[in-house]
């Protein structure tokens, strides 16, 4: 993910603020559709597809992450066909219940919103993302917190992994730890993390840290940003108000014209 964020494409060169705002607009547009809508949501797939293509983001990595996150939506959504069994749609002799329709809608929304969020990160990178958030009014303390958290995720994660590995190598089987072992292992990791924070503070202080984390800004909004955000938001509004897919389908199947 991080490597992707450092690619250099026109999409990556856009200001982070532009991409954040457009993505949020996209998610709100998706969520604002009524619950039984499926076909009208389809044109919105243009957004993630175009972004993936123009940002050189491999679709596979995004899809894998989306699939990985699917179970919760699936779990709650699956109750819909159960509770909502009235017929909503008839095709020939087959009827589709409202529940299945809203279930399909949930899954489509899920795919759209989750992929949009992942693409935002992949085409911006955490560094610019946090800078953009701060410029959009998020408290600096929180933006810095996100940066530090992300920075030390790998360091602490690796430390935890090493500790678990050493426990597993000295115990039979590789199942979960016993509570006692767990307590001291996790506690140990906690103390080590706190020591590390102390050392980091020490190194910050020795370079004149005074409570403010300063970064040299090198971005500015350009006309490309305006076109990008404006164009996409206009597209979302059109899709939200006219069911393009249904229109296309009707035109093709020749009914209802």
């Amino acid at each position: 993910m991080d490597e992707l964020g450092r690619l250099d494409t026109p999409l990556h060169r856009l200001d982070a603020r532009t991409k954040i705002i457009t993505t949020v607009a996209f998610i709100v547009a998706v969520m604002s559709f009524p619950r039984y809508e499926v076909s009208a949501l389809m044109p919105l797939f243009v957004f993630p597809f175009v972004l993936m293509a123009s940002g050189n983001i491999p679709a596979g990595s995004i899809l894998r992450k989306v699939a990985f996150a699917a179970p919760f939506a699936l779990f709650v959504g699956l109750f819909n066909p159960w509770f909502d069994q009235h017929a909503a749609l008839t095709i020939g002799s087959h009827t589709i219940s409202g529940g299945w329709l809203s279930f399909a809608s949930i899954m489509v929304r899920f795919a759209l919103t989750v992929s949009a969020a992942l693409i935002l990160v992949a085409c911006t990178g955490i560094h610019h993302l946090c800078a953009g958030l701060e410029q959009l009014g998020v408290p600096r303390l929180f933006a810095v917190q996100l940066l530090f958290l992300y920075r030390y995720l790998f360091v602490i994660g690796e430390e935890g992994l090493r500790m678990i590995r050493s426990v597993q190598m000295r115990s039979t089987g590789s199942g979960p730890l016993r509570l006692r072992t767990y307590g001291s292992l996790t506690g140990h990791l906690l103390l080590r993390s706190m020591d590390r924070a102390q050392r980091i503070y020490c190194s910050m202080a020795s370079r004149g840290f005074d409570g403010q984390v300063r970064v040299l800004r090198r971005t500015a909004l350009g006309w490309r940003d305006v076109i990008f955000a404006g164009g996409w938001i206009a597209f979302f509004i059109i899709v939200r108000n006219w069911n393009l897919a249904d229109g296309l389908g009707r035109w093709l199947t020749g009914c209802g014209l």
Binding site: R196, I200, S203, S206, G208, D210, V215
Partner: peptide, 28 residues
């Protein structure tokens, strides 16, 4: 007095090399 710490991971906390090296001068 500039101190280089034993574990570079404790010292390189910013998101890019540039930002990290700029940390001290910016604080000044």
């Amino acid at each position: 007095v500039g101190v280089v710490f034993q574990d570079p991971d404790d010292q390189l906390f910013m998101p890019t090399v540039f930002d990290d090296v700029a940390f001290g001068p910016l604080n000044a």
